[in-house]
Design a protein around this nucleic acid. Sequence first.
RNA 1: CGGGGUGUAGCGCAGCUGGCUAGCGCACCUGCUUUGGGAGCAGGGGGUCGGAGGUUCGAAUCCUCUCACCCCGACCA
Length: 416
Amino acid sequence: MRYSQYYIPTLKEVPKEAEVMSHKLMLRSGMIRKLSSGVFTYLPTGLRSLNKVSQIVREEMNRAGACELLMPMVQPRSLWDETGRWEQMKGVLLQFQDRKGSDFCLGPTHEEVITDLVRGELRSYKDLPKTLYQIQTKYRDEIRPRFGLMRGREFLMKDAYSFDRTKEDTFKSYEVMREAYKKIFSRCGLQFRPVLADSGDIGGSLSHEFQVLAHTGEDRLLSCTKCDYCCNVEVHNGKNQCPQCRGELEELRGIEVGHIFYLGTKYSEKMKAFFIDEDNKEKPFEMGCYGIGIGRTIAAAIEQNHDEKGIKFPKALAPFEVVLINLDPEDVKTSEKAEELYQYLVKHKIDVLYDERKERPGIKFNDADLMGIPLHIVLGKRGLQNQKISIKNRFTGGSSEVELSHIEKKILESLK
RNA sequence: CGGGGUGUAGCGCAGCUGGCUAGCGCACCUGCUUUGGGAGCAGGGGGUCGGAGGUUCGAAUCCUCUCACCCCGACCA
């Protein structure tokens, strides 16, 4: 991508609406803009990051045997009346009517729709287990949207739903998802903890949150210093001792980016979603549901990884892997070399942003730092006279001068 | 919803105890000079002061209502 053709409106100053770091930096780096409270436009670089997270999630879901589908955002009241949640969730449901006066809502979650979908179609125990998922925009009319993408009203979420024959089978599906979640957040380059949690409003009796560790996190966690036990402080055992190994618990702060629940038959019973079991009897599906906030994951990554200059994106989430900074775009030789390198990177399918703007060096360096692009390749007239190009790693801060003849090899190595 | 706060140019702000033509920094446009970490000088464009109503000879400024946004609380991915 050529910078001058791209749309990256960076800001020198922080809009006063932003209070937390991730929100400030996403606005400043031109990733998002607010349309209304809790409702955001993803600009090109923001969308790139969003798509990177989505793709990682998609790959791991598929690997775990889940099947992707896409459900509607607009949902009829009738489904919500079946579970009683039309009234129960009135607070967060954005309800409205169509031209005929029928009631609808924008989907804040999809238990009703998915259960409705399968109840006519998964008929036999032989059809089970099944896990279905989607990556889709949710709308929750939050009481108080805040902190940019951390808590929006409209947000992109991956939601998966498992259907099993027995409770024991559901625990297996649940475990598969738990492992998939660990892979997802590891691949995102994040420090996180799976945390024993309260199951909240969705219902069910077993749940884990996936918390990205950050001092600015809203959730307080108790993590064992000896074993892998970690729980939300909301789960009060009243003790400061690990229930698994009696080790000491330390308090950490986290941002909830994922949550998995065992639902049981809560929805399947109410919605009469039955399958025929081996004994020829109708039984309600045993269900689980599994969410990941895609946008929130990006915000959490920024909370966890930034410095005074801007974002320090893990490579997996960065909008671009490489920024190629041409310091002397008016100089023919420099531009020829830069163009050659740009084409080389494009050919090798590396996400590269080629900064060929007629701007001063400081502006280019600062924009690259602000956006958090992991690898900076800087070439200018001065360096080329000595046959040198410099490479800088935004994450480690290290930089080196590389011989012109080795530059391609060196770049590919640096990206590993 | 309860409590607190803010709305003046694209962004950040000053002006607000009633008075001239509404200002500053950044950004933007033109020209010259600069050019390896957010350049300098000179010139220039951009505002129904969130909206409505009121008080007054006169309102960004005072009063009433309203809307939007932000922060603290309950909620959540």
